[in-house]
Design a protein around this nucleic acid. Sequence first.
DNA 1: GATGAATGAGTTTTCATTCAT
DNA 2: AATGAATGAAAACTCATTCAT
Lengths: 219, 219, 219, 219
Amino acid sequence: MTSRSAGEGGRPRLRADAARNRAQILAAARTAFRELGTAAPLDEIARRAGVNIATLYRRFPDRNALVQQVVLDGFTLVIEAAHDALDVAPQDPLAAIERFLLRLVEERDTLVLPLIGGPVPTAREAVELKSRIAPLLEELLAHARAGGAIRPDATHMDLITTAALACRPLPYLPEEQAAALATRHVHIFVDGLRPTGARRLPPSPTLEELSVHLQPNRS
Amino acid sequence: MTSRSAGEGGRPRLRADAARNRAQILAAARTAFRELGTAAPLDEIARRAGVNIATLYRRFPDRNALVQQVVLDGFTLVIEAAHDALDVAPQDPLAAIERFLLRLVEERDTLVLPLIGGPVPTAREAVELKSRIAPLLEELLAHARAGGAIRPDATHMDLITTAALACRPLPYLPEEQAAALATRHVHIFVDGLRPTGARRLPPSPTLEELSVHLQPNRS
Amino acid sequence: MTSRSAGEGGRPRLRADAARNRAQILAAARTAFRELGTAAPLDEIARRAGVNIATLYRRFPDRNALVQQVVLDGFTLVIEAAHDALDVAPQDPLAAIERFLLRLVEERDTLVLPLIGGPVPTAREAVELKSRIAPLLEELLAHARAGGAIRPDATHMDLITTAALACRPLPYLPEEQAAALATRHVHIFVDGLRPTGARRLPPSPTLEELSVHLQPNRS
Amino acid sequence: MTSRSAGEGGRPRLRADAARNRAQILAAARTAFRELGTAAPLDEIARRAGVNIATLYRRFPDRNALVQQVVLDGFTLVIEAAHDALDVAPQDPLAAIERFLLRLVEERDTLVLPLIGGPVPTAREAVELKSRIAPLLEELLAHARAGGAIRPDATHMDLITTAALACRPLPYLPEEQAAALATRHVHIFVDGLRPTGARRLPPSPTLEELSVHLQPNRS
DNA sequence: GATGAATGAGTTTTCATTCAT
DNA sequence: AATGAATGAAAACTCATTCAT
């Protein structure tokens, strides 16, 4: 998930052990964020990763750097899943949508932080990735609409919402059971996307229209 | 939500000012839990409630006592919503189910901690309330199944999962927008519950079968 | 121990229940001081006494008032024991000394705070009582010296030291066993007081010469 | 007192500065425990040691760890003193006993927590050390009994009791004066150990027979 | 006279962060 | 590049004290 190719990102290639440490830190961070939220103690993350806290700081200068990388890895996954779905969309567009959602549910431990309602991406790379998501999903929906496989009022936001909700960690439930429940939920939801007999939906904002708070809201 | 009648619970009735403080603490805790998770600083909760931290400790001897009361209030709400839905189930059982889910989305600020995947209820009272939920929801589904208004393979777990997911806080999103998205999501989901053309669902555990961890899982 | 006669002390006689509370508070304080030191939490003392903390404050305006009363009760006991010993001193002066020491060991739960090395008495009453102790003990020793029953270099300070040490609480030992060990210790010590074959003692200060610190020493 | 040799204890050798801090913390703890009891504020101990409170916590994860090390250092001292005394026991066994007791009185600031009646040793190392004490003292007494230098009914418990009592801190008395009084007390006690004219002692438990409470007793 | 309640000021404990090795 | 160590600052929790009932 965390591409570390030297040329592109501009960061120097890491020594092998350093790269391993970095990957372990990110894995530990994802687990910790899922269980304890993004405020999870950094030394706890270091401990789970089996590295010293100072090593974590060397790789990620502050908590936000770590959070942003997790966000970015999540976006990368979503885009990959969307591309995969698009590949099969021509054959069965509704199945493609379901495939997209279930792929995310399967890899929900990478999607710890929700697409919406999660930390706002600030890293240039993450912002760029995020902006690609809505068009991809609209493309996916276009296939389905064209074939009349889907109710016309469903939007990319509904897919994003569903991905965000179905992948939310349920910290006190074993991963396996949480995934099973989320899978059933997605099944029913996708059935609800079919056009037959569907009731009118209330209006939906687009991803861009969503106002996001830089701080968790204090409503 | 938090009924403090003297006779039943066994706790002595609180003085009026103390009862007010207690309610404010719980309200502040719900908000803080939604924004920051159940690890939210207790002194922040006290500050929001406008009481001294020691007052919070007098009412709730530790963080878990507070969490448990929030859990319990959530269960109480779910049961109320289920009863309300049952009242209208004879007329339109599918509408009753939607009414149940939307009522919870509306009062999502009381349902901060999810029915499943949230802190395990340990207080006797909470355990008892929780055990009443599944039967009520099955009763609700029975109405719908009897009228053929619903696919036969949907279970109370699907309603619980949906309630849990649709009410999860999306901390960086304004409440209003989060509620709008959740509402759309519930609409589509409920449409997916209709029997026509529904595909087979994978098997579902019951609420009782769910294994829960006393600690957030370390999968 | 705590005489509450109205006339003498100047304090108004207490209502019966108040007097009972006062006695319970003092008993609880002695136990708590023995186990936890004089810094024992006042609300813990109140709890053990079965009264509300505010009731404790009504009787004893601050911690020192409580400590001073315990000190005073200790002095009262020492004086009583000395008088008792003097009564039998003419017959067997060494036995009288031993009787004095063993009486204190027996009532060590009243002598929680040591004669020396304990909180400095500040209440007028306590200061006055304390000043009576050395003369009484010297009188006791005089009997013994006169009969040649005791080494001539032993002083009242040796008795006070022994009383102080032998009554020190040993918090992790059951009272009974602590008393048994202290009793043996006193036996041997008193045997050491006999004149035959005794070696020279290093010089001793008098009770008055002892410099005491108002704060526990920071040597 | 606190030997930190790497090989034996199993703990990795500390960096030089860390070892210095550790020693200062222990010294400060002993002083504080003597003056304020084992409930002395840990931040006060850190302040006296000249280190940050978090440094104290890094070395000693909780109060008990600190208490246990002080207990252990006390046992180490007692064993050293007993060995020293055994060295000279053949020449003058009674003098050797006195030397043992006076050595402890001299180093009473290391023996802050009493051998008996103090916190129960739980650390494996401390338990082991403690079990060596009684045999050493019996050996010491054996010399004296063999030479008829001592009453036959005195046991190792009497030495332990005396060491425990004579070293108890007398917080409101300057160290020097407390030591002077304790020294005299030991003198007389040792004279009481001589066989001539000694009266019968009441029975004594052994160190092993002593029942100890894991909590300070609530008699 | 007694108590439930509240609070300000500690004390304990944890955490983020930096530094020296 | 990695780690042991240290620390300031925050958060958890306790305690002494006062007030209103």
